[in-house]
Amino acid sequence: MRRGTAWTHPPPGRVLGVRVEIHGHRGARGLWPENTLPGMSRTMELGVHALELDVALTADRRLVLTHDLTVSAVTSADRGPVHAGDPLYPYVGKPINALTLAQLRTLDVGVRLPRHPDDPFALTQVPMPETRMPTLGAVLGLVDAYEAEGVRLHVELKSDPTRPQLTADPAMFTGMVVEELDKHGRLGNAAILSFDWRVIGEAARLAPGTRRFALIEPDTLHWNDGVGDDVPAAARDAGATTLSPEHVMVDERLMAQASAAGLDVAVWTVNDAALAGRMLDLGVAGVVTDYPDRMRDLWRERGLELPEPVAPLRPVGV
């Protein structure tokens, strides 16, 4: 058995444990470029219980970090074709699954390019020019290098049943992610997340000991058949161990339903301390945030257990 591999179902009830957790969203999108190696490094050094990241599949079947199924003009900038005369260049706006890793690695993903002047992340995010799009394997290698055993990896599989031309086959996609996590001994200290509950069901079959977060928001609930009035029960039946709703959906009724279904609740995306306080009062087990620094201040004020910062990597030979 590999280090960190778990082969049994997690116990019912509070899957995340008794502590209330801070989950860094796309690393820490409000502070550093999202879904990047330098952003993940600094987020671990700041201190979070979990790193959340997004993955999609390239044309040559590589798992890369990206929130969007097409190359975003906000988070990515073309820097030149991978070879002269590439007919797919420019790459911004093209589907991720139509481009190879080599093509995607030409993009600069370290500078946020706001489409409108009130983009809050463009105002607070530290630019890191010439940062490249990483693979999931590279992130796992980075976490291994940090020896960050106390940081859980939350891998969201980007899948949209309404756009099958942009979406990988859920079974194949989930299998590739599970295999990559297992290769690094991370199945026991990771979670698989998706709005597409086909992924959750496949993850339950392939990695029953790995946490599984059913993501929900009002706009995409219809993606999943038979949800009905009791969303937490439906998520549990689909294979989830945790319900992860958009904060606008969280109220006493949802929390009671989640408790009855034996699911924890990890709410997203909460950047305001007052809102986070209300979520904590309702009993959520985790808060997904673009600003882990703000949540750390709130945790400190409330006397909650703070995640330990990970020690910075030392230069070679030091």
Rank of each mutant, 00 (worst) to 15 (best):
R2P: 12
R2C: 00
R3P: 01
R3Q: 10
T5V: 11
T5M: 03
H9R: 11
P11R: 13
P12I: 06
V18G: 06
V18A: 09
V20Q: 12
E21H: 12
I22E: 08
H23T: 11
H23A: 10
H25C: 09
R26V: 01
R26M: 08
R26G: 09
L31A: 13
W32V: 02
N35K: 00
T36G: 01
T36W: 08
G39K: 00
M40P: 01
S41F: 02
S41C: 05
R42T: 02
T43D: 08
T43P: 03
H49T: 05
A50E: 07
A56R: 09
L57N: 04
R61D: 15
R62L: 02
L63M: 03
T66Y: 03
L69M: 14
V74A: 12
V74I: 15
S76H: 07
A77G: 11
D78Y: 07
H83W: 15
H83Y: 15
A84W: 14
L88M: 12
L88G: 08
Y91V: 15
V92H: 04
G93C: 13
K94S: 13
A98Y: 04
T100A: 02
T100V: 02
Q103C: 10
Q103E: 15
T106C: 11
D108A: 06
R112D: 04
R112A: 09
R112H: 04
R115D: 14
R115S: 13
P117F: 03
F121G: 00
A122I: 12
T124A: 11
T124Y: 05
Q125K: 07
P129N: 13
V139C: 04
E147R: 15
A148H: 07
A148W: 09
L153H: 02
H154G: 06
T167G: 04
A168D: 10
A168V: 13
D169S: 05
P170K: 00
P170N: 06
A171C: 06
F173L: 07
M176D: 03
K183V: 12
K183T: 14
H184C: 04
R186P: 06
A191R: 04
A191Q: 04
A191K: 01
I192P: 03
F195G: 02
D196F: 02
W197P: 04
W197L: 03
R198C: 03
E202I: 04
E202R: 03
A204M: 08
L206M: 14
L206Y: 03
A207H: 01
P208S: 07
R211M: 11
R211Q: 12
R212F: 03
F213I: 04
A214L: 07
A214S: 09
D225K: 14
V227M: 12
V231L: 09
V231M: 02
V231W: 00
P232T: 01
A233S: 13
D237I: 09
G239F: 05
T242Q: 00
P245S: 03
E246K: 07
M255Q: 00
A256M: 11
Q257A: 12
A260Q: 12
A261T: 07
A266G: 14
V267K: 06
W268D: 12
T269I: 11
N271K: 11
A273S: 14
A273R: 15
G277T: 15
R278K: 15
L282I: 14
G286Y: 10
V288D: 14
T289G: 06
Y291I: 00
Y291H: 10
Y291P: 02
D297M: 10
R300A: 11
R300E: 08
L306F: 05
E308Y: 00
P312T: 09
L313W: 09
P315Y: 13
